[in-house]
Design a protein around this nucleic acid. Sequence first.
DNA 1: AACACGTGGTT
DNA 2: TAACCAAGTGT
Length: 368
Amino acid sequence: MESNSLAHIGKIDIEAFRKDLLDWFTAEQRQLPWREDSDPYKVWVSEIMLQQTRVDTVIPYFLHFINKFPTIEALASADEEEVLKAWEGLGYYSRARNLQSAVKEVRDTYGGIVPSEPVDIAKLKGVGPYTAGAILSIAYGRPEPAVDGNVMRVLSRILLIWDDIAKPSSRKIFEAAVRELISHDNPSYFNQALMELGALICTPTSPKCLLCPVREHCAAFHQGEQDTLPVKTKKKSVKRLQMGAVVLKTDNGNYLIHKRPSKGLLANLWEFPNVELDSFGSHRKQLEEFLRLEYNVEAKIDNGLLTKIEHVFSHLVWNIDVFTGSVKDISMISEELRAVEEEELVQFAFPVSHQKIWKSYKESCLKD
DNA sequence: AACACGTGGTT
DNA sequence: TAACCAAGTGT
């Protein structure tokens, strides 16, 4: 990390590198909804959505979200339920809650103007070093580094940096590199160009070096190391949990749904009642016991599985056995449970696995 | 520092 | 198909 991580930076013709990179971006950049103007709020929303998420996935969510919450004021005054519903299916739901929290902070503390000072913007919830640099450079033209996975991959190759990019401590090496390389005439294009190059040309596998506008500046290309960089250690394998879930119909035709806790996995999203199962005894009995003890609900679980659903997260996998069942008396229903009509379900934000549960349930109803 | 935190596309 | 990947942040 040390001083020799950036040994190759002195060998680059920085002026020529900037020009080649910016000329390429000017000619080849994709037309994306968040590139139509540099409204700091829209830049902000796009950057949060793009965290760990593909451009093609984000586009429809961004269009809908900006249409529904066009301004900081609109988002700040919205119900959290509405915001989560607009985020449904995007994943990493704390992004949505942190974004709304930070937007309220901007309304209340900064007069509704996204702060343009690094120390201020970095305080906002959900705005880390990358997002701060992205907003500052793209919306305000400040020469701040915006180092994401693309930038680390691209610069590890151009500058032949062998540090492990999976280590948090490596990011500052790349920030130091960007501070030396960045165009002060157009920091916005420079940062976006580095990311666009990573997305379109300098890809994780099979980089398209023969199409690369800066290959003559690239140490890895000259040394034939483009396929060995970046160095990135592997993460450990995920844990598997056996879950049981149940679509529970009340005697007056409503369905029981549960709101998840405000912290942790899928926070504040709604779901069908579910619990981790052990391998001893009947899954039906375990579910009935869980419903009685946890929610004070006396339920009859039907014989036979409705379906099995696999829900893959970054760090774990749920194998969900899905049942159907009925409840007679919900007078003593617990707080986090709601009995809602079928038509009302669309108002609630569900994780993808529970959307699949409902879809499967509706398909099974058609057969009767 | 290491791990939690979603989802869908690719290899 | 299991593993990996994609414009990271919070704790």
